[in-house]
Write a protein that binds this DNA or RNA. Structure first.
Lengths: 340, 340
DNA sequence: CTGTTAGCGCGTTCAC
DNA sequence: GTGAACGCGCTAACAG
């Protein structure tokens, strides 16, 4: 890279001291109008930009927020990133994005690297690998170092920090209730393995709605999809049961369920209903389009980053972890009948 | 944030000099085994991490790559980010992600901020706003400052730097040819306004294939979709013409076209064919699933970052801009008939 | 083997 | 009104 122009070079070139330059560039009243103009003109001409690294080192803050997500090719997380980025920008921050790829190991490494001073704070959604082995020590270390941290969506209580989550139980409840209102009785649930707690919470909502309708939950209708194995096969297996509706905890499962339902000859939504999760492109553009729970990833991202920046900038205050719950909406589309 | 432990504190605590600590931590042979152990033990115990900011300032490199994309809630760009991130990680780099939101103004600002020393190089896909007003001065400045830059997907020749693109002309050609082989004669093209050059290139391929088949291109069958207006309306308008196939330059247009085609009562793929662009979730999960051009965003991202890092690390060499063309594949699905 | 010095680029304090 | 000195955290060159 080309030699960058610094305060020092300007000072030498103009025969003044570096501090004079520094002050002049900040339009300080300590400097005579004359020299200020000279210096500013020179800086302008040579396109001087203060070196942010030096500033960061001096100020002990980077104005950068680290973001660690399990994956990105996923509508929900994409929108979260958008929200975080927008919120960060508004406050003069930038974001550094990393992915754990659902791996515990990579999450630990990334967390370690980012906490070496390159970011002022972190926003993390926990990898499923970590949720599975339940080892949260790396987060504990972070908290001990008092590095501001906000957990989003996939959170665990053990970690003492701010959190932003969707109302997963409520969402599961709303979705299931809507299916019941469609007159469905045999509602299959396509969910994640238990350790992914959002799946577990949505399931709670599902069960709650069934109980209220005096329907016994049938374990055979609940499939905990193992993403390591063939997903379609697992879903098709569910369709071997006698079912009249599906509630899927993400949009891919919902889309696959729709395919399976069509193949079985079910008419949607006349005699079969489907609800998904994540208001992404698939739900919107499949046909019939899929009724879904909108998670509002953008809002979550934005709230998370606002919370984080507040924490960063008001470090004096006593630390009382906050938890923000974003309520989710049912977005009615063609895969279910309108509620009466 | 809690007071961080530094080399200095260790030095003071252990009654040695900072340079001794520095060397000891690097396991230098200059230091006696005894002191090394003492120091390392202490550092370990207090979980010492070298401050990356200081290192960056000293080494004049950040090991960070800036990435500026027009948007993210888009399968192609998501996969690009994945590729960039993975490639960067492999070489010990991190990525700082920003979005121009297709806006010229934001692109200029972001470019300026990131080029103040916070990144070692940049990967950019140009905002459509910039392509429209054709003002590339901000990129010129970057090149003049000799900040390594790689342009991907949306590139322009005026900017002298490395580039990674897909073979858009070839892709348009392949897609159109496949439709012709399906026996289609009246192929509509749903593309972007002309200033988005990838759209223009794909159109060239489309026209080339038609010419080879001795079919005159009919301007009425070509719709340059204006994203500011209602997209569906514009697409439905195309269907007022007598057409038997659609080639769409992205998957959203393809999905919308599919809806419109179904409404018109066309049977897909028996008497109507559709091809999209971007092998994303919509194409995969809609029904019928959509034959599409796979752009290989992951590969592009990875190639781009490898090119960039090479440029960063071998700055001595003479600068000869490279252009890598990634060939695209036609991914056959249900919305077209198999080629005979 | 260990310590001193200097410098990365900047801003601030305190003399002059 | 201007400049010298210092420090942010670290390391390389040089001294001892």
């Amino acid at each position: 890279m080309k030699q960058k122009i610094t305060i020092k070079t300007i000072a030498k070139e103009l025969g003044v001291s570096t501090s004079t330059v520094s002050k002049a560039l900040k339009d300080s009243h300590e400097i005579s109008k004359e020299t200020k103009e000279r210096i500013q003109a020179y800086a302008d001409y040579y396109n001087y930009k203060p070196n942010s690294l030096a500033l960061q080192l001096r100020n002990q803050k980077t104005k950068v927020i680290g973001v660690i997500l399990p994956k990105i090719v996923h509508h929900f997380f994409s929108t979260v990133i958008m929200g975080v980025e927008e919120g960060a920008n508004e406050k003069g921050y930038h974001i550094m994005v990393c992915f754990s790829n659902e791996s515990y190991k990579k999450e630990v490494e990334t967390l370690k690297v980012l906490s070496n001073g390159s970011v002022d704070g972190l926003i993390v959604s926990i990898a499923s690998g970590t949720l599975e082995n339940k080892d949260f020590k790396h987060f504990g270390d972070l908290v001990a170092e008092e590095i501001p941290l906000v957990l989003i969506d996939r959170v665990v209580d053990e970690i003492l920090c701010d959190k932003v989550v969707v109302d997963d139980v409520g969402a599961g409840y709303k979705a299931t209730k809507h299916l019941l209102e469609n007159g469905r009785k045999k509602i299959a649930l396509l969910t994640t393995p238990k350790h992914v707690n959002v799946g577990a919470l949505r399931r709670q909502g599902y069960e709650k709605a069934l109980i209220e309708a005096y329907i016994k939950t049938d374990p055979n209708l609940i499939a905990e999809i193992d993403e390591e194995a063939n997903i379609s096969d697992q879903i098709e297996k569910v369709f071997e049961q006698d079912i009249d509706a599906v509630f899927a905890v993400n949009e891919i499962y919902a889309a696959k369920a729709m395919r399976a339902a069509k193949q079985k000859g079910h008419k949607i939504p006349e005699d079969f209903s489907i609800i998904g999760f994540t208001d992404g492109l698939i739900s919107r553009y499949s046909s019939p389009s899929i009724t879904t729970i909108a998670q509002h990833g953008f809002v979550m991202g934005k709230q998370a980053v606002e919370l984080l920046i507040e924490r960063i900038e008001k470090e004096s205050e006593i630390y009382k972890p906050k938890k923000i719950v974003i309520s989710s909406d049912l977005k009615l589309r063609e895969s279910t009948k309108p509620s009466s």
